[in-house]
Design a binder for these strands. Structure first.
Lengths: 139, 139
DNA sequence: CCCGTACTACGATGCTTATCGTACGAGGGC
DNA sequence: GCCCTCGTACGATAAGCATCGTAGTACGGG
């Protein structure tokens, strides 16, 4: 079942040879749905990816992340994030660069990404301190 | 599950010391997980419930919501919200009152709930105006 | 031209979940 | 007492999804 498979192209029309840009399908800004974004962020691996992208504030390749899952699963998570409109992915050579779609997200849902990132950081700090349920040192 | 098949006996009348009259299990504040909250909010029905609870700023019975699902499914969604720590549920007579756990959420994840609610409102306004993709207007 | 690296597609698997219908318990009104 | 309403539990079902392994494509370097 090999030779008849479609080449790489995922969204682009293959009318031309499409030499350089192996383009990936991204939702346009106005197609981004809040529920989809929340769902994308509700997975620990994906939340980790997003936090790292925000922290480094740079375009990172998929292999820059050291996730405790296989590469197949990584690919899956990156795709979910991309299709939800959270990240942007572009090929460069053999690598694929990932970047947060911060401007779009901030325009659509002001403050959402920031509060999620803050919440994730606080939660991590809390558990790092040892989360005693009845202790309640918060605030 | 949590309490398995506890027959929900009313506490006062029974001869045996009924431990839980009609009390529901809620996670303590420090057990609330960001991922769980995001996941709970990523379902359209549940997001609707939360928005309505925030809008009315009151305790509402389950049947105050007119969801396009059966009662069983409603119960399911309320349970998910409760177990994620998003809402609080208490029995009063035959009804069950639902309330947002806003203080807890705001303490744990400052600004998160507000930005989700704002995002939901904005998204609704956007689609009410006719959601033309690529015709974007920036705010 | 061959090979290694980066990533993907496909298929499988097992878990979660959103939904329903039905039967039932708890409380209040008559 | 009887029964009605509110909500639950249980079982079923179908879909979704996180994960893996394997086999494959794309690109750049020797």
């Amino acid at each position: 079942m090999r030779a008849s498979r479609t080449p790489v192209r995922r969204g682009a029309a293959m009318t031309t040879a499409a030499p350089s840009p192996r383009v990936l399908d991204h939702p346009s800004r106005d197609d981004i749905r809040l529920e989809g974004v929340l769902h994308a962020l509700s997975d620990p691996q994906r939340l980790l990816i997003v936090r790292e992208l925000a922290r480094r504030a740079a375009e990172l390749t998929c292999s820059d992340f050291e996730l405790p899952v296989t590469k197949s699963t990584s690919t899956h998570h990156f795709r979910v994030l991309r299709e939800a409109g959270v990240i942007q992915q572009i090929y460069r050579g053999t690598a694929k660069l990932n970047a947060l779609r911060r401007p779009d997200l901030d325009t659509l849902f002001p403050g959402l990404l920031d509060s999620v990132l803050l919440a994730a950081t606080r939660q991590e700090e809390r558990s790092a301190r040892g989360d005693s349920p009845s202790g309640g040192r918060v605030g």
